[in-house]
Design a protein around this nucleic acid. Structure first.
Lengths: 142, 142
DNA sequence: CAATTAGAAACCAATATGGTTACTAATTGG
DNA sequence: CCAATTAGTAACCATATTGGTTTCTAATTG
């Protein structure tokens, strides 16, 4: 229950919006039912997607959300940049500079880690939410 | 202060052990000074590294820790498998199966994410703690 | 004006993390 | 055997994050 699933929920929301692109607006209540959570949880994430420029949300009756551009032009990386967590963090305490390892460790590790993260991000950039929606619709399990 | 730096600390510890491989044992107090934290924090992580087979810890006077194999044969991935966090988690609540997206979403997203994670892990596998120690020693900042 | 919706604040429970203190058990050296 | 050292461990604390809920406001529609 406390496992930082915000990125996955954001992708789920975006996939639903992809399926409705060019059609009707989708409200937070409908997305909440699909994700199986509370509409407020959805709106919390929605806000960030709006601020990030991926979604436009319209309040009021007949309101709801739509993608700001075609789902073929939105990748998992776009969402990851908004809702993703860095897989690895450096400690807040600085290592001891009097130690041969400590004095340069942070910089050395950081460069290695960013290479690894970039490799992951390149993979995320290859997948669009149009792809995701298509696959979900093609293999609906039953 | 609460940023999940355990992987980074584990790598730091392993890099220190790499610098002492074949020489003396290293105790948790020394590693704590280099990382700039408490020896108990070090020992908590040490336990997992021991259980994971990367480190041997000897109690008692003159005790301390050593690597179980040469630092050239220990990669960041080996440490990541013990102390790393999954960069992305799926939500605990299952999506609504009555929704076209919800019913197959988890499986579809999961396969895309594991490709991305594998790309990151391949990069982590390329770096050994011998590399890290060498770089730290080569560029000690001052 | 009534209904609907996003936005938002306030609060809660569960969890994770870093930190600290204090103990036990094992090992070494005198 | 005894003292010193060290890993292993438990207990506890403060802080932060997360998912969840309730409740409100503001905007929009008809």
């Amino acid at each position: 229950m406390y496992t930082n699933s915000q990125f996955a929920v954001a992708v789920h929301m975006m996939t639903i919006l992809a399926g409705n692109y060019g059609q009707q607006r989708v409200n937070s209540e409908l997305m909440a039912r699909s994700v199986n959570t509370n509409p407020v949880i959805i709106r919390r994430i929605l806000r960030k997607l709006v601020k990030g420029g991926l979604v436009a949300a319209v309040p009021g009756a007949t309101g709801g959300s739509v993608l700001t551009r075609p789902p073929e032009q939105i990748s998992l990386l776009d969402i990851y940049r908004i809702e993703g967590k860095q897989p690895v963090c450096l400690p807040e305490n600085n290592p001891n500079p009097e130690c041969l390892v400590g004095k340069s460790f942070k910089g050395v590790l950081c460069s290695k880690l960013s290479e690894a993260e970039q490799a992951m991000e390149r993979k995320l950039a290859e997948v669009t939410i149009a792809d995701l929606y298509t696959e979900c619709a093609e293999f609906p399990l039953f």
